[in-house]
Design a protein around this nucleic acid. Structure first.
Length: 199
DNA sequence: TGACCGATGAAT
DNA sequence: TTCATCGGTCAT
């Protein structure tokens, strides 16, 4: 088995939309104790900072909740939503650009039994096909907010390369309030992949 | 200090 | 389609 190649600064400090597409096929890994829990990234959404009405940092909003988005690219932004769930984002660009990519779905790879325990579900399809679900399955929570993805327990590794022809672009989910931004095609997923949120 | 609301998920 | 659920946010 070849040694994992962890994505570095140069990957993350680029245009957010490009990163959202290139994250498809990569492997999100949580090293929990001596165990690896991981999944192939199948679905992402780009959030474009101050000019994006769907983004938590729209208009330059900076609060205790959003402060991680002002870190430089390659950090985690984890927030709590709907009183129950966490969502995991990858911060992009520099501290001048509070933009991020939401990871919406994974295809489980390693630690599947642990995922089943964390989720209290048995079917593989129920483990990671949604932003809240995948955080539960991976054991990701608020304590991971602001961590570096280059030298912490959570990393993203090279895995598969997905070609442009295999990428579908659609409007983002759950942002009906975002006026003109609600139709921007910033949701990306791997064509024909079974592990996609919604249906 | 308190009212309001949400980048969801699961049940119906 | 409906709704549970509660921390974050912001107006007092």
């Amino acid at each position: 088995m070849t040694r994992p190649v962890i994505l570095k600064d140069k990957f993350y400090q680029r245009d957010t939309e490009t990163i959202a597409k290139e994250l498809l096929g990569k492997k999100l890994v949580h090293c929990l104790g001596n165990q690896r829990i991981s999944g192939l990234i199948t679905e992402t959404e780009a959030y474009l900072g101050i000019k994006d009405k769907a983004c938590h940092t729209y208009g330059g909003r900076k609060t205790d909740k959003t402060k991680s988005m002002y870190l430089h690219g390659g950090h985690a932004y984890v927030y709590f939503i709907y009183g129950k769930y966490f969502c995991f984002n990858v911060v992009t660009l520099t501290d001048q650009h509070p933009e991020a990519v939401l990871i919406r779905a994974l295809e489980p790879l390693e630690g599947i039994d642990t995922m089943k325990q964390f989720r209290k579900k048995d079917k593989i399809k129920d483990l990671t096909t949604g932003p809240g679900k995948l955080c539960q399955a991976m054991g990701i929570n608020k304590s991971h907010d602001g961590l570096s993805l280059m030298n912490s327990e959570i990393t993203i590794e090279e895995h598969l390369t997905i070609s442009e022809a295999q990428i579908v672009a659609k409007p983002r989910i759950g942002i009906h309030y975002a006026q003109e931004a609600k139709d921007w095609p910033l949701r990306f997923y791997i064509k024909d992949n079974l592990f996609i949120s919604k249906k």
